[in-house]
Simulated scan of single mutants.
Amino acid sequence: MSAYSQEIREAIRTVPNWPEPGVMFRDIMPLLQRRDIFRKLIDSFVHRYQNMQLDAVAAIDARGFILGAPLAYELGLSLVPVRKKGKLPFDTVTQEYDLEYGSASIELHTDAFAAGDRVLVMDDLIATGGTMLAACELVRQLQAEVVEVSAIIDLPDLGGSDKLRAAGFDVYAVCEFDGH
């Protein structure tokens, strides 16, 4: 783990038993509030992706927007918000995915990418992988290529990063936490 990664990991607050008993919630708000650490976080993503010949960052609603916007700006890429169903005003493609109790849907505008665009899919954390997998499927539906999926935090115990790799996607996270 790099020095940046360790500083970033240490800035993440763990809130036990939230939103329900037994859950260890990984809160990125303290990281965002510390401008020095937030800068190191965005810089670490910039350094990773500056030579990957990307066209766009697909940032997942809502915390993915916090990361995707400054990264897209710094790299001169387009920013494509992946939104919850019903939030986009134009023609959309929709992908449903499973949650622990039920399901949800996310959408992209049909003109979000050109065929062959190279896309980074980004969110704040990888837990069970459902949202990331759904976002990757939307990118593929629009005939663009997912170069990598990226997050601040991976929770490998929940199996999401393994699911993403099994589906053929490269996965990058700045840091990992064991336990939920």
Score class of each variant (00 low, 15 high):
residue 99 L to N: 05
residue 149 V to T: 12
residue 141 Q to L: 12
residue 124 D to A: 02
residue 173 A to W: 02
residue 131 T to Q: 11
residue 154 D to S: 09
residue 109 H to Y: 08
residue 118 R to A: 09
residue 153 I to K: 10
residue 164 L to D: 07
residue 133 L to I: 10
residue 121 V to F: 06
residue 160 G to M: 01
residue 121 V to M: 11
residue 110 T to N: 15
residue 156 P to F: 03
residue 127 A to C: 10
residue 129 G to C: 07
residue 147 V to G: 01
residue 105 S to A: 15
residue 120 L to Y: 08
residue 145 E to Q: 14
residue 161 S to P: 01
residue 160 G to K: 04
residue 126 I to K: 00
residue 127 A to T: 02
residue 149 V to S: 07
residue 146 V to D: 04
residue 141 Q to G: 09
residue 117 D to R: 07
residue 109 H to N: 13
residue 139 V to Q: 01
residue 124 D to C: 08
residue 129 G to M: 00
residue 126 I to P: 01
residue 139 V to K: 01
residue 151 A to S: 13
residue 174 V to R: 00
residue 117 D to S: 11
residue 171 V to Q: 05
residue 134 A to T: 14
residue 113 F to I: 06
residue 169 F to E: 13
residue 109 H to P: 03
residue 137 E to M: 12
residue 164 L to I: 07
residue 107 E to W: 06
residue 100 E to V: 05
residue 168 G to A: 11
residue 166 A to R: 10
residue 154 D to M: 02
residue 164 L to R: 00
residue 115 A to N: 14
residue 159 G to T: 02
residue 130 G to A: 07
residue 169 F to I: 03
residue 129 G to P: 00
residue 161 S to C: 06
residue 161 S to L: 07
residue 145 E to Y: 11
residue 139 V to N: 03
residue 134 A to W: 08
residue 144 A to C: 08
residue 166 A to Q: 13
residue 150 S to L: 05
residue 159 G to S: 10
residue 138 L to N: 05
residue 102 G to D: 05
residue 104 A to K: 10
residue 159 G to M: 02
residue 151 A to Y: 01
residue 110 T to L: 12
residue 124 D to E: 07
residue 150 S to W: 04
residue 144 A to E: 04
residue 111 D to Q: 13
residue 154 D to V: 09
residue 171 V to H: 01
residue 168 G to N: 10
residue 120 L to K: 10
residue 164 L to M: 08
residue 113 F to T: 09
residue 122 M to S: 09
residue 129 G to F: 00
residue 165 R to S: 11
residue 119 V to E: 05
residue 145 E to R: 15
residue 162 D to R: 13
residue 166 A to L: 13
residue 124 D to I: 02
residue 111 D to H: 11
residue 99 L to T: 11
residue 102 G to F: 09
residue 141 Q to A: 14
residue 100 E to R: 04
residue 148 E to L: 09
residue 129 G to T: 07
residue 146 V to K: 03
residue 157 D to W: 11
residue 148 E to P: 04
residue 132 M to Q: 12
residue 174 V to W: 03
residue 168 G to M: 12
residue 114 A to S: 15
residue 110 T to Q: 15
residue 140 R to Q: 15
residue 130 G to Q: 08
residue 160 G to C: 02
residue 98 D to F: 15
residue 136 C to M: 00
residue 150 S to Y: 02
residue 174 V to F: 03
residue 99 L to I: 14
residue 136 C to R: 00
residue 156 P to N: 08
residue 102 G to E: 08
residue 127 A to K: 05
residue 108 L to E: 04
residue 172 Y to P: 01
residue 149 V to R: 02
residue 106 I to W: 06
residue 154 D to C: 11
residue 142 L to K: 11
residue 128 T to D: 06
residue 144 A to S: 03
residue 151 A to T: 06
residue 112 A to T: 05
residue 145 E to C: 12
residue 100 E to P: 07
residue 105 S to K: 14
residue 168 G to I: 10
residue 146 V to I: 08
residue 106 I to R: 04
residue 152 I to G: 02
residue 112 A to I: 04
residue 129 G to A: 03
residue 137 E to L: 13
residue 125 L to A: 13
residue 112 A to R: 02
